[in-house]
């Protein structure tokens, strides 16, 4: 039952994240949507891991390890994307004043 509830939740998060990616125009909001989408994918991994529980292990450790790796990669992506957006805003301003 726990797995059904969170499986539905994960699937819904994927849908919500995808929707946000399509309808949002601001880069920061897209980054948020990407993270929601990623969270949904990780949650599906988690449900699959929980389903793979055996005697003595509450959850299959292999997908758990993949999710940990994935969270760190998603963080790296978020940090890089945010720096790009911030730099883009600074540069856009700089160009207007300077080069033209």
């Amino acid at each position: 039952m726990t797995m059904t509830v969170f499986g539905l939740c994960g699937a819904a998060l994927v849908g919500i994240g995808l929707y946000g990616l399509i309808v949002q125009a601001q880069p920061l909001r897209r980054i948020l949507a990407f993270n929601l989408l990623g969270g949904g994918v990780f949650l599906l991994f988690g449900v699959i891991a929980r389903r793979g529980a055996v005697e003595g292990l509450g959850s299959d450790p292999v997908p758990q390890a993949m999710v940990i790796t994935g969270i760190v990669v998603a963080f790296s992506a978020t940090a890089l994307a945010i720096s790009l957006v911030v730099r883009l805003k600074e540069t856009g301003r700089g160009d207007d004043e300077g080069s033209a």
Binding site: R50, A53, S59, V72
Partner: peptide
């Protein structure tokens, strides 16, 4: 709740 405390801490 999914018994993945390592992931919970990371998240």
């Amino acid at each position: 709740r999914l018994d993945a405390v390592d992931v919970a801490l990371t998240e």
